[in-house]
Design a protein around this nucleic acid. Structure first.
Lengths: 325, 325
DNA sequence: TTGTACGCGTTATCAC
DNA sequence: GTGATAACGCGTACAA
């Protein structure tokens, strides 16, 4: 691979001049510029980003830690994050934590060692201090760490209200919520807080079911659903914590002979693109996934440039009614 | 951030010594080793991977170019690739090409500039020369470039035979295949070659439908399905090019009042984990997705070490019968 | 307007 | 066993 030296030699100038045309810095005659550009072209020269990064102590790499890209929501989100990172001249280093504290810690370490310019945390299983200590631009999804670390989320509470209200308006008399484990300041917990509050306000009885770990565990969902049908057979409305869970609820209904929406109404959360492949159109609370991904990237970049960021960014959700309510 | 110099200073040794304990190279007394390790610990020192990479001209980064992580198959595959890259001490740089030649070229350029140790190509829209010219460990999925560039794929032909045979054995009299565009030496084209050959051998009439671009285009699938129902109403068996397409076929059947499997039998391809969220269990040809991801990483690493690699790696598929046949 | 020389943090090649 | 010192490829004061 040719280096800047080779280019300088071929163009008959110094490396400084080459570096200048590379970065459009300082004044330089058109003539030399042409010559240098031509030399670059002939050698098919590409500046070594490693050396560049080392020299400017800036890598243009953003780290992304999520539970798993295989989960449709995170897959979609990751796609948007990558797209917008790319548009801003940044590369994306992908890390799947599987919601494992140990793995997450190792990934953070690795990312710091790799001198990434910032980290977008879609998975955050550690204690607050772990994030505060590392002196790096950070953004989280759905988790509040400290005022200095901005978080991006959809309006979880409003989403919970919308979903629950819809179920009640449709005539549901006994509700259930199924979701992941609500711990660690996870803001998605607001969804079922809103659910409980709204149901309570209407004097509608409800059940709360959640998995142990906040991971993507199909079997856990199926177990919870079986449990629900068994222990609360009167349930006629489900607010699912994600569209995936809603899909399994739909499937469970079919297997248990419950008609949707006649016997059971279902509302999901997320609004993933894949929901369109389900049989009936799923009613759901749509998060602005692309906007969230884009914003996360922008917040990292803004922090890199020392720009101001707010502690929180709550994006609006939208109720999308389908055929399951 | 502390550097190796700071550690050396604190431990009262030279940077060479620190580097030695860092890499377990050469002989060094236990005493100094302890001291250095302690200094590292106290400073919370992490070696700068950028400098390391520059010095050894080896970054331990693998580039991955795929159409889109948002597509379930690639999302799942990416998850496995990341996992195995990580296990081998490599990081993963993610690139979504959207099957865009221009973007793919830019990504390749960027990855080369970033001095990645190799590239796994899940998307490959360029001409053969483009890949041959770059002197870098490469692995492709489902595309044959040249003997020096190994490719990983499932046994597409066998998969096509299994799927088609199943449909015929179940009594289908008129078949259809729906898939992506078969061009550019894409080996997945073998699926419908096998389909056509098998159907032909049994004197079963069939239709071939495929999208223009090999991308993940929901609307195109729905359009093709509508077209199929309209133009070939007698079709009673569909071999879909992916589980996603199969899911839309299933949905279309429901919308057109066709019962599955009574009126229409459907077989998918891929065996993505998400298929379990569909209503009825989908019959499909299961690719060993994890094995494919793992193998791709290993092949890159083997090439880095100058190890021998075969030109092709065809992994076995498995017919999984569900409720749609 | 252009070139020299040094620094970025590590590794590797020599000496001691 | 341990320590200077020159690469690795590039950016950038500073000098010319």
């Amino acid at each position: 691979m040719p280096t800047i030296k080779d280019v300088a030699l071929k163009a008959g100038v110094s490396v400084t001049t080459v570096s200048r045309v590379l970065n459009n810095r300082g004044y330089l005659s058109e003539k030399l510029k042409k010559k240098v550009l031509q030399a670059m072209d002939e050698l098919n020269y590409r500046p070594n980003e490693l050396a560049r990064s080392l020299s400017r102590s800036r890598s243009n790499i953003i780290g992304l830690i999520i539970p798993s890209v295989a989960h449709p929501f995170f897959g979609e989100l990751t796609g948007y994050i990558e797209e917008h990172a790319y548009r801003n001249g940044c590369k994306l280093l992908l890390c799947n934590s599987r919601q494992d504290k140990h793995k997450e810690l190792e990934y953070i370490d690795m990312l710091r060692a790799s001198r990434v310019d910032g980290i977008i945390m879609g998975s955050h299983t550690l204690e607050v201090e772990a994030y505060q200590q590392m002196n790096l631009p950070l953004v989280t999804f759905d988790r509040q760490i400290s005022p200095g670390i901005p978080y991006v989320c959809s309006d979880n509470y409003q989403g919970g209200v919308l979903a629950t209200t819809l179920l009640i308006e449709k005539g549901c008399r006994q509700l259930a919520h199924i979701g992941g484990h609500p711990g660690l300041n996870i803001l998605s917990g607001l969804r079922f807080e809103a659910f409980a509050a709204t149901a309570g306000a209407h004097n509608i009885p409800y059940t709360l079911l959640h998995t142990d770990h906040n991971s993507f565990d199909v079997e856990a969902y199926e177990r919870l659903l079986a449990q629900l049908f068994h222990e609360q057979p009167g349930t006629d409305g489900i607010f699912a914590g994600s569209d995936i869970i809603a899909a399994y609820a739909l499937k469970a209904c079919r297997e248990h002979g419950r008609r949707v929406p006649e016997d059971m109404r279902i509302v999901g959360y997320d609004g993933i693109a894949l929901r369109s492949m389900l049989g009936p159109a799923l009613s759901t609370i749509r998060q602005p996934i692309e906007a969230m991904g884009k914003l996360a990237v922008e917040l990292i970049i803004r922090q890199i440039h020392g720009g101001p960021v707010s502690p929180q960014y709550v994006l609006p959700v939208e109720l999308e009614e389908g055929a399951t309510t």
